[in-house]
Design a protein around this nucleic acid. Sequence first.
DNA 1: CTAATGACCATTA
DNA 2: ATAATGGCCATTA
Length: 97
Amino acid sequence: MMFSKKCYNLLKKVPRGKVVSYKQIAEQVNIKAYRAVGNAMNKNKYKDVPCHRVVESDGSIGGFVRGVDEKIRLLRKEEIEVVDGKIDLKKYGYFFK
DNA sequence: CTAATGACCATTA
DNA sequence: ATAATGGCCATTA
């Protein structure tokens, strides 16, 4: 199965109001290709994949196809606090089982 | 086939 | 605290 598709499937498990890091997704696929995960998101065309819930491992926002501002807006819309361009992972971080 | 490019990460200075 | 550096690897040219 294609790498990008695996990322999408994992990401679909992340509930509204929670976020994961690019690294976490890479870990689930058992590789160290952190950057490749970002690439996959960038080219994602599926509508049911919540790309905006993927942030950097230190809690900063990362990037987004339609701009970082839009990403923040989407996150706030699901009750996630974004202060000073960062998210508190203790509070909003999701952990895969 | 090779080379370049990232929505990244950890370490070092 | 910021900035540079090297490494990672799927994808694309």
